[in-house]
Simulated assay, not measured.
Amino acid sequence: MIPQTTNSNQLVFLLVLLVLFSPLAIDIYLPALPVIAEQFAVDITSVQDTVTWFMVTLGLGQLLAGPLADRFGRRPVALGGVVIYGLCSLLAYLSQSIDMLLATRLLQGFGACATSVAAFASVRDCFGAARSGRMISYLNGAICFIPAMAPVLGSWLTAEFGWRSNFSFMAGFAVLGWGIVMLLYKETRPENTYVDGRMLSLSRYWSVLAEPKFLYHAILCMLSMAVILAYVTSAPAWLMTGLGLDMSQFTFWFGINAVLNIIACFLAPKMMDKLGTRKTLTTGLLVIIGSGLLMLALRPFASPWAYMLPVFCSSIGYACVLGSAAGRALAPFGDRAGTAAALLGLFQMSGAGLMVSLTQRAGLSAPMLLAMQMLLLLPGLMILWSKYGCRWHQADIIAD
């Protein structure tokens, strides 16, 4: 139930604002990746690391942010995260080497993770186990406006003011966001929240990790996120350098995928309402795996459509997988929502970041890298069809 001190529409607005920090930090400067590589005289993989390393700390920092949110509340964690995010944006603007840029991006991920933990813990606080998965899908749909609009803004900023202006924009957004959160965000932490005096107590995490349902669904979130991350980090170099597209053409293809993602994320909750989470999850996994096979089939065609068509399909599958899997992962932990959300973020962000960073060093082409990431979800589908998957979604099966 939403706290009496908080208007429901206002709360949704604030949750969207809090989760916007992460995608903004990723998507706005994607068109500038080749420019940054040229200015610092490094290979494109080093510049792609500014995205994947951000993702690693975006997840890793949640191991601390989650318990802090459970002990001190969602609001102070969110406010502190915005401050870290803004300061690191300024340091990134001032970076004089790729090493300094990488270091500031690592630190910026810690700030963004705090805002994400606060937001998703508030989802579990206010919308309960049954509605949290649907709310997560709606939030993902809302934040998909960032991939649609941020590269357009980033292209303009880079062309008019240079790549550093992307980070000054992030700093300005942090100042505005801090003021809004300070004025409007009310505490949502339930009174029965489990609190341990030891912030990094292993028992706090093991109590969540010991739940097989959590592990399975968190790994699905990680693998599906790896597909998206492999796409957003590899697409600028593949489309602009490999296939010769300019910034506006890249933004066009990137924007189409973002619009499809928005539509898919808003439709996924309706699918869960009508079909249940198990059938929605099955559909999403089948679509992503099919997208990997399609990518392999179209690999001989050196054309933007041959690369983007499987990406379009996988984005639809991603929306189905993330909404249903994330809700199922968090469902058993009403009294430890912050810690559970933190561990889910660790799997989804740090796990995906490490996977993509390592596989990018294998020398695979962008289509092959994406196809491999998509096909890694095949074992997850097999488990879902097993007796264990049936047990974890028993309510859906009984309803059928």
Rank of each mutant, 00 (worst) to 15 (best):
T5C: 01
L14F: 00
V16M: 03
L17A: 02
F21D: 08
A25C: 09
Y29C: 12
V35W: 03
A41L: 10
V42S: 08
S46Q: 10
Q48G: 08
V51M: 13
W53P: 06
T57M: 12
T57S: 05
L60C: 02
G61Q: 13
L63T: 15
L64G: 13
P67W: 07
D70E: 09
R75E: 05
P76N: 06
Q96C: 14
L101A: 01
L102F: 03
L107V: 05
L107Q: 04
A114N: 06
Y138V: 11
G141R: 03
W156V: 15
V181Y: 01
V181R: 00
Y185R: 00
T193S: 13
V195C: 11
S201W: 01
E211G: 14
P212N: 01
Y216D: 06
I219H: 13
M222S: 05
A226Y: 12
V227G: 04
T233Y: 02
L260V: 10
A268C: 11
R278W: 04
L281N: 13
G290S: 03
L294Q: 01
W305E: 10
C313N: 01
S314T: 09
P332L: 08
G338V: 09
A340I: 13
Q360R: 15
Q360I: 13
R361A: 08
A366N: 04
L369T: 06
L376G: 04
L377N: 12
G380W: 15
I383L: 09
S386N: 12
R391W: 05
W392K: 14
H393E: 15
A399D: 07
